[in-house]
Amino acid sequence: MPLYRDEAIVLRTQKLGEADRIVTVLTRRLGKVRVVGKGVRRTKSRFGSRLEPGMHIDVQCYEGRSLDTVTQVETLDPWGDAIARDYPSWTAATAVLETCDRLTEEREPALQQYLLLAGAVRSLAGKEHDPNLVLDAYLLRALAVAGWAPSFHDCAKCGAPGPHRGFHVVAGGAVCPGCRPPGSAAPAPETLLLLAALLAGNWVVADDSDPRHRREGSGLTAAFLQWHLERGIRSLRMVER
């Protein structure tokens, strides 16, 4: 029976039968895998707490016909435990995990997505920044890794150097006056600067931003995400903005 072992982050869990769980994990080498944790819902389970969303683990599984089964788990970082103690961080983390689940395919290696996810969850657990900023930075960068990088400076259609006032989700971001489609948004210039900073990882600019621009940026990010994923992320509805 083939065994494999990998570093992983738990994305979500679903109850299975009496005391088991189906656990979706994003592994460093193999990509997204769905595994069964036998008896993990029992209070005496040896690794139930390690298979909770947001936990960074070293997991060993054996391959089954439909789902693989967990045989051993070690905690690398108990990020999930730290996140669950702070409600705003937890709602942001669930949106991060759900987005990652949607952007990755089973058994397709996704190292960049893995590293990005690890960075976001670690940052939320360590309360390094405002949870909403971490969430928006993750969403923008995850979309960029998936091939949908938005433009916040140059025109997304013709490439004319910016800054531009118009923003159109379908066009791919900022648009110049010549390319600006009807119905384009006109966000504050500071909002586009904030979004560009989040995409680039410029936390000095992001941490200094005004709450008004953060809220506007979150709206644009959510609209951009929804357009590309075609279906909304359910957890985003619960995030306190």
């Binding site: 209070t43 999930g80 435990d81 669950a84 409600y87």
Partner: peptide, 11 residues
Amino acid sequence: PNLEGEATASY
């Protein structure tokens, strides 16, 4: 005593 329960408690 899982993360959903913990987050509900914190809320």
